[in-house]
């Protein structure tokens, strides 16, 4: 398990970096929908663009999240080249 110190909100992940989703905060209905879309814990995301509104690639699809949503998702950044 990664130490909690390495976690950062998805909106702060830099463009082009890949990370693993660790914690989903926010209300239940939001978390449920994210997980249903394959955006659940342990999924790998690659950030494509954006600091306020984020665009991420998960499992071959592009998902856009607004700032509040991207704040609610904590990820662990992976070293470059891991995919």
């Amino acid at each position: 398990m990664p130490s909690p110190l390495n976690l950062l909100p998805l909106c702060q992940l830099s463009a082009g970096a890949t990370a693993r989703i660790c914690v989903i905060n926010g209300d239940d209905s939001f978390a449920q929908r994210l997980r249903e879309m394959g955006f659940g814990e342990a999924a790998l995301v690659t950030k494509i663009s954006g600091r306020t509104t984020s665009l991420c690639q998960v499992n071959g699809t592009r998902i856009a999240l607004n700032h509040d949503a991207a704040m609610a998702i904590l990820v662990e950044a992976l070293p470059a080249g891991v995919r």
Partner: peptide, 11 residues
Amino acid sequence: ARPLMIMELPA
């Protein structure tokens, strides 16, 4: 409250 948005961008 400001809504949380999740939206898929199609290819």
